[in-house]
Computed example of a mutant assay.
Amino acid sequence: MRGITLLRAAMVVMAVATTGCSLPRGAAMQSEITGAARNAETADFAVQPVTRAALPALLSWPSTDNTPRYSWMGRTGGSSTPLLAAGDVISLVIWDSAQSGLLAGPGALVTPMSDLRVSGAGEIFIPYVGNLRVSGMSPDHARETIQTALDGYIPGVQVQLAAQPGRGNTVDMVSGVAGPGAYPLVDRNTTVLSLIAQAGGVPAALNNPRVKIFRGSKIYGTSLESLYESPDRDALVLGGDRVIVTPDERTFLALGATGSEAMIEFPKDTVTVADALSLIGGISDSRADPRGLLILRSYPASALRSGGPTRAQVVFTVDLTSADGLFAASKFPIMPDDLVYATESPVANIQTVFGLVGRAFGLSSTLGL
Rank of each mutant, 00 (worst) to 15 (best):
Q158I: 06
G20N: 09
S260D: 07
T19M: 15
A312I: 11
D88S: 10
V89L: 05
L294F: 13
S302V: 07
D324W: 01
D115T: 07
G105V: 00
P139N: 12
A57Y: 11
G282R: 04
G355Q: 01
P184H: 07
P203I: 10
A46P: 05
T34W: 01
T343H: 13
A204Q: 12
I334E: 02
A36L: 14
R2A: 11
Q48N: 10
P309G: 14
K268S: 06
S278V: 10
F354P: 00
A276R: 08
A108S: 09
Q99F: 13
D338G: 03
D140M: 02
R311G: 03
I94L: 12
D140Y: 01
P333W: 14
G216P: 02
M263F: 03
G282Q: 07
S194K: 05
A9P: 01
P346M: 11
L236I: 14
D248T: 02
I94S: 10
P309M: 14
A43N: 13
W95R: 10
I4W: 12
I213N: 01
G120H: 00
T272V: 02
D248Y: 02
A288G: 03
L55C: 03
E249D: 14
G307H: 09
G240F: 03
S286G: 02
A28T: 05
F125R: 11
G136E: 07
E229F: 01
I4E: 11
V202E: 09
A108V: 11
V318W: 10
L84M: 12
L238W: 09
G216I: 06
Q198I: 04
D44M: 06
A57P: 05
V13W: 07
A9L: 15
T51L: 08
S286L: 13
V237E: 15
S79Y: 03
T251D: 08
P231V: 14
Q30D: 06
I90T: 03
A323W: 00
P247A: 15
G355V: 00
A204H: 04
G239D: 13
G107H: 03
T251C: 02
R359D: 06
